[in-house]
């Protein structure tokens, strides 16, 4: 069930419940919508689902009495009914993400979240543009082609905490995979260096929003783990999985240990 009426932010879509053929139909706010309490002439307030972005309305039937309302911006595809991108991809719990391993310690792995499965990159410029604080340092002498600003002069706001600073050039959201979240079996015998190496691209799931800096991730599922890796700590060639825990560099024949994402697809 869908329609393609275009709505602007704030526009009313439907009340949260309606009577149809003497049956109550409930509408639930999905992506790109929120509930607004709208006053009518008689001092009554009616809960109405209103749009929060510019896009087209799509209705999804949950069952006979419940319908979910989503607003989908132009250019976004509907891959699954419950999993619609609304243009902005902030990582959230239960999202499957691709991460790059930056640093490993005995207890945990530090990584950077590159993209969210089915939704694309998190940062608009994939982290290569100058959206970070470095780009803000000053307006270049000639004026420059960019819309640059000095970060020190930003009228810092009622909502921003003083100890929060923006990341540098192209930095992404960070994540941590703790030792106990790598595998679901044999947790006490896991050695991190036999599972991941810095530079690996890993498929992982977000288990918590974590602290101010890091998300907490897990790879303890068959379909999660290393997807791309290079041998000899990145100096070698691309390797291919040969089973659940080994990868082979087919040019040199070198075999290295990794926690592979399901290689048997």
């Amino acid at each position: 069930m869908s329609s393609s009426t275009i709505v602007v932010p704030g526009q009313y879509i439907t009340p949260t419940y309606k009577l149809q053929d003497n049956k109550q139909i409930n509408y639930q706010p999905g992506r790109g919508t929120t509930i607004a309490q709208i006053e009518t002439g008689d001092n009554l307030k009616i809960p109405i689902i209103s749009s929060t972005i510019l896009g087209s309305i799509h209705y999804f039937k949950i069952d006979d009495e419940n319908i979910k309302v989503n607003v989908i911006p132009k250019g976004e595809k509907i891959i699954e009914e419950n999993d619609i991108s609304n243009g902005i991809n902030l990582p959230k719990e239960n999202d499957v993400v691709l991460v790059k391993i930056n640093r490993i310690t005995k207890l945990q792995i530090y990584c950077e979240i590159l993209s969210i499965e089915n939704k694309g990159n998190i940062l608009k410029d994939s982290g290569i543009g100058s959206n970070g604080s470095l780009s803000h340092e000053s307006i270049p002498a000639g004026g420059g082609s960019q819309h640059n600003f000095n970060i020190q002069t930003i009228a810092s706001s009622q909502s921003t905490q003083l100890n929060s600073t923006i990341f540098d050039l192209g930095e992404n959201f960070k994540g941590i995979i703790r030792l106990q979240d790598i595998k679901s079996t044999n947790r006490d015998k896991i050695k991190i260096e036999e599972n991941f190496k810095p530079g690996d691209i890993v498929r992982a799931i977000i288990i918590s929003l974590g602290d101010g800096t890091n998300y907490y991730l897990s790879t303890s599922r068959n379909d999660l783990g290393v997807v791309f890796a290079k041998s000899e700590n990145g100096s070698g060639n691309l390797m291919y999985p040969i089973d659940w825990q080994n990868m082979i560099d087919i040019e040199t024949g070198l075999i290295e240990k990794r926690k592979n994402a399901n290689p048997f697809i």
Partner: peptide
């Protein structure tokens, strides 16, 4: 021009923070 939402460093904040500059 609007940049973000993009990551922030420091303590955990459960809602986005907003900064505005007019120049």
């Amino acid at each position: 021009s609007i940049f973000g939402p993009r990551p922030i460093r420091g303590s955990f904040i459960e809602r986005g923070s907003l900064s505005v500059e007019c120049k």
